[in-house]
């Protein structure tokens, strides 16, 4: 579905990602673990075309997207929930979701999105900036789903969210995967969440993938070593 091969990304002279190779199968949930500053956000932004790729390639279903602009990648089926949510704070909840419809060509917000996040239906006329952090997170996911993606990218969705909600979020992500048959790539620092949600756990360290384990039979202490300092 999503194939990343030998991806190098640099900010000016300083290279942050040194040749990543990742393949994500349809319907698979992949967690990318790594400490602060290891390049998770950089990888997500490179996949979305927000930071330029130095070399290597990214393809969706065999379609090369490396040279495409962000909106063209969205049209190819990539959707993005950024770290810090980045919702449009002066627009209403409903309008926020509707911005995602430009890519999918839909007219009104599909019912199933509100079924997934009933709280957004309740608050659809409120300005996005006036939602709580957790509600904004749901809004950011809803907006991404409105684009009708094949691969959903989430950058540290658990940041600043309380443990009980984190568990619910894991359930929601799996439900989204099951209902929509899409692949999910989620970057994470919370191991328990990753183990809850993922089929496969990768570890990124200094811009390189250093571990790649299927969920079943994973050695938790080995992975945890990379996350503690």
């Amino acid at each position: 579905m999503l194939a990343i091969s030998n991806l190098h990304v640099a900010y000016g002279q300083s290279e942050v990602l040194h040749g990543l190779n990742v393949a994500v199968s349809p319907g698979e949930i992949v967690a990318i673990m790594g400490r602060n500053g290891m390049g998770k956000t950089t990888l997500m932004k490179a996949l979305m075309g927000i930071v330029p790729t130095k070399s290597g390639s990214v393809s969706m279903n065999g379609v090369e997207v490396t040279g495409l602009r962000s909106y063209e990648r969205v049209a190819q089926g990539l959707a993005y929930v950024p770290q810090g949510r980045m919702i449009f704070s002066a627009m209403t909840v409903e309008e926020n979701i509707e911005t995602g419809l430009v890519a999918s060509g839909g007219k009104a917000v599909p019912r199933d999105i509100y079924e997934l996040f009933p709280v957004l239906l309740e608050m659809k006329a409120r300005r996005g900036g006036n939602l709580s952090g957790g509600q904004q997170q749901q809004l950011a996911v809803a907006r991404a789903l409105a684009t009708g993606p094949k691969v959903l990218l989430l950058d540290e969705p658990t940041e600043g969210i309380q443990p009980s909600i984190i568990r619910e979020m894991a359930r929601t992500l799996k439900r989204i995967r099951d209902e929509r048959r899409l692949s999910i790539v989620v970057s994470e620092q919370v191991l328990s969440f990753a183990l809850d949600v993922a089929d496969r756990v990768l570890v990124i360290e200094n811009g390189e993938i250093v571990r790649d384990d299927p969920r079943a039979g994973i050695n938790e202490t080995e992975v945890a070593k990379y996350l503690s300092i």
Binding site: M48, S70, V74, A75, M91, V102, A103
Partner: peptide
């Protein structure tokens, strides 16, 4: 619909692109 795109771009150009809006 057009105005929504305009306002999204005004508020966050990068994010508007990443939800599928052709900002240019």
């Amino acid at each position: 619909r057009w105005g929504r795109q305009v306002r999204a771009v005004v508020q966050n150009r990068v994010m508007a692109g990443a939800v599928g809006i052709n900002t240019e």
